[in-house]
Nucleic acid binder design. Structure first.
Lengths: 221, 221
DNA sequence: AAATTATTTTAGTTTAGTCTAAAAAAATAA
DNA sequence: TTATTTTTTTAGACTAAACTAAAATAATTT
C-alpha cells in the first residue's frame, strides 16, 4: 500500500503536526527527515494525490483523517515493538529506537493484533509515550513535570521529555523507569533541586533532571 | 550493507545452489525470483563486484564463502522469526512465511542474538527446516520419508517436503506437527498407504502424504 | 559441420526517490 | 512601498532496480 519512504514521511509529518499545531512547512519536514526541501515538495505531491494530506503550495501541509490514521498506525507499531524489545528481550530502553524504526514497517495486521495481546495490551511504550489504538486514539493522561510537584506529593513516572542516551543511562543506573513510583521529600528554592524517594532509597535530583521527567500524580494519597 | 533486493537474490541463489549442486543459471534465478533474466544479469554483476559470488558469463553463478555466510544469516533470521511467530504468537505454521519474509531483513545482530536465546536456541523451524548458526553451519539429521519406514518403526516428524497450504491444514487438523512422535502400525502394498499411531489415535495416511513427511527415526526402540 | 533452438547478455527505457541550481512566491526590513 | 531575505517550487540530472527488444553465445538437432 505505502512505500517505506511514504510511511516515513507520514509518520514524521504526524509528529510535526502534533508539536506545531499549525500547518507543517516544507523546510521543517526536510529537516526532520534529513533531506532537502525540494525532495519534500515532490513527495508531498505524491501523498496529496493519494489523499493522505492537503497541500497548499507555499502554505504548509496537514494530514487528512486518512493520513492521520495511517501515520498513527505506524507509530502504534513502533511503540508496540519497543515494548516487546524491552519487556521480552530485555533491551535497555535507550537501545530500542533504531530497531523499532525498522520493525514499524512490517506489514501484517494480524501480527500487530497478536503482539498487542502477547504484551498484554500496553498503553505506553518504554519511554512513556502513549500507544495509539487501532483507530489512532491515544489515551491521554494528565502528566506534570517532576519539577512542578510539591513536597510530599506522590506519583508515577510516565515519561521523559527529551530522551538523550546520557539521560536514559542516568536513570537506568538508579533503576528509575517508566512505572517507578516516587515521592517528593524536599525541594530547594535556590537551585530547583529535589530529594525524592524511590522504593527505600532517596535520590538527589537536579533541576535539569526534574524538568525532564513526566509524572502522573497519584490522586488518593 | 545490502539492499533488500540484494538480500533476496543472495537468499534465493543460496537455496538454488543447495538444491542443484551445479552452478546456478540466470534463468533459474529469474524464475525463482519472479523476474526477468536480464534483470538477473544486472544484479549478478553487482553482487559479483561485491565479492558475493562468482559469475562466468553464459555459465552459472556460485556464491563465495562470504556470499554463503550473508545468505545463511538471512535464512537464519527467517527461520528464527518463524519459530517466534508460531511458539510465542500462536500462529499456525502455514501462516508465518509471508511475515518472516519481511522480518528476515531487519538489521540487528543483537536482536537476533536475543531472539535466539528467548526461543531457547531452536535447531529447527516450524516446518522442520534447520536453522543455521551464526557461522552458517547447519545441524544435519538423517531423515527419511515416512513412506520409507517399515512396520513397527518409530520416529519423530522433523519436516515436510513440500509445504502447500492444503497439506499443512490437513496435518494441523489432526494436530500433527514438527516434533510429533509417530509409530507405523501397518502398511498396504497395493497403494502404499499406512496406518500410523499418533498419541492415542490412529490415522490413515495415503501414499501421497507419506511421501511428503520427513521422519527422524528413533534409534532405541 | 551447419542449422536451429535455447539461453544469456547488451542496449535503451521506466519509475521511485533523491539531488543541485535556478526561478518564483512570500515574509521582513528599510 | 520598495528592497532584501527567506522559503518554496520547478527543472533537469542521477541511481537502483526493474523492464522490453535485440544481439550474442552456447547447446542441440539434423
Amino acid at each position: 500500500m505505502f512505500t517505506l519512504a511514504e510511511e516515513n514521511y507520514l509518520k514524521n509529518i504526524y509528529h510535526l503536526q502534533t508539536e506545531n499545531s499549525e500547518g507543517v512547512s516544507t523546510n521543517l519536514i526536510a529537516e526532520s527527515l534529513q533531506t532537502k526541501p525540494s525532495s519534500v515538495t515532490d513527495m508531498v505531491k505524491k501523498l496529496a494525490a493519494k489523499n493522505m494530506l492537503l497541500h497548499k503550495p507555499y502554505k504548509g501541509v496537514s494530514l487528512t483523517e486518512k493520513g492521520k490514521k495511517v501515520a498513527s498506525n505506524i507509530i502504534r507499531k513502533h511503540r508496540l515493538w519497543e515494548v516487546f524489545l524491552v519487556e521480552k528481550l530485555n533491551f535497555q530502553w535507550d537501545e530500542v529506537h533504531e530497531i523499532a524504526e525498522q520493525l514499524e514497517h512490517i506489514q501484517s495486521d494480524e501480527l500487530i493484533k497478536r503482539m498487542d495481546a502477547f504484551l498484554d495490551f500496553p498503553d505506553f511504550d518504554p519511554h512513556g509515550d502513549p500507544i495509539p489504538d487501532e483507530n489512532g486514539n491515544i489515551k491521554v493522561t494528565e502528566k506534570k513535570l517532576l519539577s512542578e510537584l510539591k513536597k510530599n506529593q506522590r506519583g508515577v513516572i510516565v515519561g521523559v521529555k527529551e530522551s538523550g542516551s546520557d539521560f536514559l543511562k542516568f536513570l537506568d543506573k538508579r533503576k528509575i523507569n517508566i512505572g517507578t513510583k516516587i515521592k517528593v521529600l524536599g525541594k530547594e528554592f535556590f537551585d530547583g533541586s529535589m530529594i525524592i524517594q524511590v522504593r527505600n532509597e532517596q535520590f538527589f535530583i537536579s533541576k535539569k533532571i526534574a524538568k525532564n521527567l513526566f509524572i502522573q500524580i497519584s490522586e488518593h494519597v
